[in-house]
Design a protein around this nucleic acid. Structure first.
Lengths: 249, 249
DNA sequence: CGGCGGGCATTGTCCGGACATTTTGCGCTT
DNA sequence: AAGCGCAAAATGTCCGGACAATGCCCGCCG
């Protein structure tokens, strides 16, 4: 067959169907025509129809179910931005090259104030490990860190390594947990006086409080960490990129 | 053909090839066998090979190039976390329900200090619009915002709407820009005295400084915004989720 | 020696057909 | 009327083949 215009048939068909969905010919929730119907209507093989539909599926416009049929899921694709954090350790930014200088350790029952900081209800019991994170180079203090580990994983206590591997990672590995989500919260606070000295910072100077909650499956996080960074030594940076099969039009 | 074990051939093949890549039989950067070679080796049709390879491609293990061949791109899939920000306006959190109370406006040539805050070299000329962002409900001041617009797009100046739609969005729409990336930087500063009064905050109290740079294609951002949030009125929250086609094994 | 052009290898597109698998629902049986 | 089972419909998988489009390399020619 000679060159048609320029676009492949399945791309043309994909665009046509996307337009029809967008125009409202098929509404969200509606059944979408079957492969055979589209094949007949557009005079293309079922293979080509499937290729086109597959694309719309990946875009989230359609969903298919063997035996049941194809359903319209969305009217149009909204641009979607994602922050990619490969390996997750990147999130902690200074992952390697730092060391945890452990200062305090033990079980705590969290009360009102701390519970609020942790984003958990009061009364829960956690294993708390706190200390100063320092640069390996120069031993310079970077931040104060408090790590709260859910009681059932407290067995890790004596095997925690203060080196390169993040604590949550050690725990996840040891217990076979699958870290499915991490929530991060950043706020500004005044540097607490009792930390100022340790961090070599001025009391009450602006600081970043970073809370990270690590989830494995639904429900409560298995670890929560709180870090206080002096304002002049840290900034959190993220880059969001638009993320969609661009490909041809 | 009767039921083989249970898995579809292309899935079996996909798993086998993934294993071989992981085991190092094909190294990163190496040429991967041809469709025809695999077809012959595994006694399956080229269609089936392509289906399997397509999967490995989506996983990022392989990349193909018409005329050139298939190349190994990664040895294994590392878990990948993404923050999804649909519609991007979500990023600004209080997107709707707020209003910009414009206070200052005009061209500026940025000097050392401001340039550093903006993450740009000194000497550039930008259109600066600054003001207080308030909650529609109650007119309560939320933050001080400075928006810098690249000179080329300064024509928008008289058409800027202070309502729901973020400025960067208005500009992008007007000039047909494709916002491909947004970089966000969060740091802690002391509330500048001259802003404290306007925001109803205490001078020198901890505040969050949020910088967002909007990119359209490579090169310099077309807009940079700086916002100062009183520490007690704002926290930045993000949720990263693991994100991988689970499907069957 | 360098550039251009054509042939070859490789992936991309498309067809037609054949079963397999999954749902749904109708109709028969109890 | 309730339940079971099977047929029909829909998507999923797989084959074989054909040609198009794309890169790449090598050889010819200036």
């Amino acid at each position: 067959m000679p060159t048609r215009g320029q676009m492949a048939r399945y791309k043309e068909l994909r665009a046509t169907l996307a337009r029809e969905i967008s125009a409202g010919r098929y509404k969200v929730g509606d059944r979408f025509p079957t492969d055979l119907e589209l094949s007949a209507r557009f005079r293309v093989s079922r293979h080509t129809v499937r290729e086109a539909v597959r694309g719309l599926q990946e875009l989230g416009l359609l969903s298919r179910q063997a035996g049941s049929g194809t359903v319209v899921r969305a009217r149009s694709v909204e641009p979607l931005y994602t922050q990619r954090v490969d390996s997750l350790a990147e999130l902690a930014e200074y992952a390697a090259d730092t060391r945890l200088d452990r200062r305090q350790e033990g079980f705590v029952v969290v009360r009102q104030g701390l519970a609020e900081l942790m984003g958990r209800p009061p009364g829960e019991r956690w294993l708390r490990v706190a200390g100063i994170r320092r640069a390996v180079q120069g031993n310079f203090p970077l931040c104060w860190t408090e790590i709260f580990l859910a009681e059932r994983y407290a067995g890790m206590r004596d095997r925690l390594d203060d080196g390169d591997v993040p604590i949550f990672n050690q725990v996840a590995r040891e217990y076979g947990l699958d870290v499915t989500a991490v929530e991060q919260r950043i706020s500004a606070i005044a540097m607490p006086p009792y930390l100022a000295e340790w961090l070599g910072a001025a009391p009450a100077e602006p600081a970043l409080l970073v809370r990270r909650s690590y989830y494995s499956g639904a429900g409560a996080p298995f670890e929560v960490s709180l870090s206080v960074h002096p304002g002049d030594r840290y900034a959190y940076t993220a880059r969001l990129t638009r993320d969609r099969k661009t490909e041809n039009a």
